Simulated assay, not measured.
Amino acid sequence: MTQKVIAKQSGVSASMVSRILSGRLEQAVVISEEKEFRVRRVAEELGYRGSCQS
């Protein structure tokens, strides 16, 4: 499962998925709570597990 698939199903960019799932949301990045929730929900539904390399 890739972040690109999560992005497509969530309606956001792959880079935004990466930022949300890694917890690296900079202050300059504005994202609604609804979008963040949607990304996390889709990731959970798809069984996404982040890389251990980070």
Results as ranks from 00 to 15, higher is better:
1 M>H: 06
1 M>D: 12
1 M>I: 14
1 M>K: 06
2 T>F: 00
4 K>S: 06
4 K>V: 01
4 K>G: 07
5 V>R: 10
5 V>Y: 06
5 V>C: 08
6 I>L: 06
6 I>Q: 05
8 K>C: 04
8 K>D: 13
9 Q>M: 13
9 Q>D: 10
9 Q>C: 13
10 S>T: 11
10 S>F: 03
10 S>I: 02
11 G>F: 07
12 V>P: 00
13 S>W: 01
13 S>M: 02
13 S>Y: 00
13 S>L: 03
13 S>R: 01
13 S>T: 15
14 A>Y: 01
16 M>F: 09
16 M>I: 14
16 M>P: 06
17 V>R: 01
17 V>E: 01
17 V>N: 01
18 S>G: 15
18 S>P: 06
18 S>W: 07
18 S>H: 13
18 S>T: 08
19 R>E: 12
19 R>L: 14
19 R>G: 11
20 I>H: 00
20 I>R: 04
21 L>F: 06
23 G>H: 02
24 R>P: 04
25 L>N: 06
27 Q>V: 14
27 Q>K: 15
27 Q>R: 10
28 A>D: 14
28 A>R: 10
28 A>H: 13
28 A>E: 15
29 V>T: 10
30 V>P: 05
30 V>K: 14
31 I>S: 12
31 I>R: 04
32 S>R: 02
32 S>E: 07
32 S>G: 12
33 E>L: 03
33 E>K: 11
33 E>C: 00
33 E>M: 03
35 K>Q: 08
35 K>R: 12
36 E>A: 07
36 E>T: 05
36 E>Q: 10
36 E>D: 09
37 F>P: 06
37 F>A: 12
37 F>S: 09
38 R>F: 12
38 R>A: 14
39 V>G: 02
39 V>Q: 06
41 R>N: 13
42 V>M: 08
43 A>M: 05
43 A>P: 08
45 E>H: 06
45 E>P: 05
45 E>W: 03
46 L>F: 01
46 L>D: 08
47 G>C: 00
47 G>T: 00
47 G>A: 00
47 G>D: 05
48 Y>P: 10
48 Y>L: 05
49 R>T: 13
49 R>A: 15
51 S>D: 13
51 S>L: 10
52 C>Q: 11
52 C>N: 12
52 C>H: 12
53 Q>Y: 14
53 Q>H: 14
